[in-house]
Amino acid sequence: MPTVKSVETILMDHPAAGRDHLIPILQEVQESEGYLSQESITKVGKALDMPSSKIFGVATFFNMFRFQAKGKYHVMVCRGTACHVKGSGRALDLVTKALKIQPGETTRDKLFSLEVVACMGACGLAPVVNINGQFYAKVTPMKLQRIIEECREKEQTHAIA
């Protein structure tokens, strides 16, 4: 786990930062807090003298930034070339339908979040999905459905116990 640094500390690490420091700062904020919150963007904007609309514009230009906190289960679906050929499109469809969220979003119960990545370097296992660091190889929609249900069941047994 990365160490949790406050936005203030991150900004202090970039003394006299200008607009050209925006992306590295946003990366550090996301690394520390897991996502870019309204509060952090406002703070960064104040420090760099940039309106938050501009920062939001820059941040949404890149796929790497997210604006909602990650869920307990962070699902990464690979949409790289090899996975695409092996049918990752259908896998992604299933996840968005099963979780009722789009890439970049988090379910309202904060259990799942979804991210699309370009390649995880596991092309031999295509199509591949990664949940909280664990790889699931050669996933099919059916397999994925089961995986998601397992996560939900695990949570329910926890809740009862």
Partner: peptide, 20 residues
């Protein structure tokens, strides 16, 4: 004022406010 700016990229781009 900068209430609006370009959001997203490519064919998904639109003009919107901070956090939409």
């Amino acid at each position: 004022v900068s209430a609006i700016d370009f959001v997203n990229r490519g064919s998904k781009a639109y003009v919107g406010t901070a956090f939409n």
